[in-house]
Design a protein around this nucleic acid. Structure first.
Lengths: 159, 159
DNA sequence: AGCGAAGTGTTGGCACGACCAACACTGCTG
DNA sequence: CAGCAGTGTTGGTCGTGCCAACACTTCGCT
């Protein structure tokens, strides 16, 4: 193990190192690890759904999925679990009888807040090597790209 | 579909919108789509491996995997395909008889160069909404984070 | 009024990527 | 020599994203 280990062994090829697509993929993996490690993998999805329900009022499942970038089918099964745990209520929309209005419960809110603190910690860990200015710069750049590629309309006023 | 569609329907919850972990995950998905769409999904992995082999000389599979952030087991099957297509040669290391030296072939180089142009296009598409300065700023920030979280040593002198 | 197109929720499936575990083998080091 | 670590391989699991189909509802149009 000597011949390979001591020289500059750990470094990716330049082609990838200069590729934003690769860099963002790698970093996404690290971020995923941090989150899963701070809360569980299932809680990761739950967090997004609960966050959506808390900030938008009662909402149809499809609309919720669109705003979170999650497929209708996947939303469905997540809500099954969330509803079983009393974090969410699913009631038929009286106006549109084919839709179901999803709503967060007080229990769900408590869970969301509990997850919040751990998620915040993960964010901080991820951005640790950056200065505060660089961190906000990075998130702002990411927001611009995400907004463009996912066709978001009025970006919720960034910090 | 009217009641929900025309107002500010498309926008993620603030909690996620302010989360670098979430943003980077979303963008990683977009980047992945762009690449898979420019070359195939298998070619995406091939590209990383071929890029590594082109820039580092002949190399053991494990070392290659380490530098690319890919598991030994996954490297193994990728090389099976690459070798079958004559893009790569696997020869036993004469010094370390338990290792196999992997080497890119001229055919592999040609494939790498062909992929290169399409990958470049994908990068450009991903960063289209940014100015050149912002683009280099973003990649530099991403590099710093990736370098930190994956423990790379001497970051190959960024642009 | 009725017909077709489109939206909704659900189930089931596929593909891909990131892991992990075990195995046989080689190499190093006490 | 014995034990431990590195190597390549096989095979498996899990999470995530995506698509297809289905039954049902709603909208738009003539």
């Amino acid at each position: 193990m000597k011949a390979e280990d001591h020289q500059g062994e750990i470094a990716p090829p330049e082609r990838l190192w200069q590729s934003p697509t690769w860099l963002v993929g790698q970093l996404s993996g690290d971020a995923h690890r941090l989150i899963v490690d701070a809360i569980t993998a299932v809680a990761r999805t739950d967090y997004a759904v609960l966050a959506g329900l808390e900030e938008f009022g009662p909402l149809s499942q499809a609309a919720l999925g669109r705003r979170l970038g999650i497929d209708r089918s996947d939303i469905s099964v997540v809500l099954d679990r969330l509803q079983a745990d009393r974090h969410v209520t699913r009631s038929p929309d009286p106006a549109h009888r084919s839709r179901k209005l999803v709503q967060i419960t007080p229990t769900g809110r408590r869970r969301l807040e509990r997850l919040d603190t751990n998620v915040k910690k993960a964010q901080h860990t991820l951005l640790k090597p950056l200065t505060p200015d660089q961190a906000t710069e990075l998130t702002s750049l990411l927001q611009r790209l995400v907004q463009h590629h996912r066709g978001y309309q009025h970006p919720p006023a960034a910090s």
